[in-house]
């Protein structure tokens, strides 16, 4: 049962718990909930001007599977591009943690949280990823000339 050990490990020693300044232009915030169980999950990513996720933090109030799912996904997204992060499927999380069927929705929550965080970051930077890159480049230009 190595998989359930992974779940317990992430629950007992959750990685990347914490918060970032949601007003920071480099930060994207995803806030999602599972109304059936009253869970709430906040997932934040810090993105480099090149569009790579350099850091991720989460805060989850919910069951052990929700905490483990968000802990795992923060580990996975670090070093990924925004599109790669958005492509993570809940089934991969569920499989990695060997979530029981009744807890599959916890992995759905984590998938939706990262998608929401990427979406928030893109919105901050003009709506699309391409625009975000352009804005970042402009920002970097500005920073250099300043």
């Amino acid at each position: 049962m190595s998989y359930s050990n992974k779940l317990i490990d992430h629950y007992d020693n959750p990685r990347n718990v914490g918060s970032m300044d949601k007003k920071d232009a480099q930060v994207g915030t995803g806030l999602v909930g599972a109304p059936a169980c009253g869970d709430v999950m906040k997932l934040q990513i810090k993105v480099t001007p090149e569009g790579i996720i350099e850091d991720a933090k989460f805060k989850t109030f919910g069951c052990g599977s929700a905490i483990a799912s968000s802990s795992l996904i923060t580990e996975w997204v670090k070093g990924k591009s925004l599109d790669q992060a958005s492509d993570i499927k809940n089934t991969e999380i569920a499989e990695e943690l060997a979530l029981p069927p009744v807890k599959i929705h916890c992995s759905v929550l984590a998938e939706d949280a990262i998608k929401a965080a990427v979406e928030d970051y893109k919105t901050k930077h003009g709506g699309t990823a391409d625009d975000a890159d352009a804005t970042d480049a402009a920002d970097a230009e500005e920073a250099r000339s300043a």
């Binding site: 909930g33 599972a34 709430v40 939706d112 929401a116």
Partner: peptide, 14 residues
């Protein structure tokens, strides 16, 4: 097992 993003409610809950 649907998720939702009602920012006001979720912010308050958080």
């Amino acid at each position: 097992c649907n998720t939702m993003s009602d920012p006001v409610l979720l912010m308050e809950a958080m």
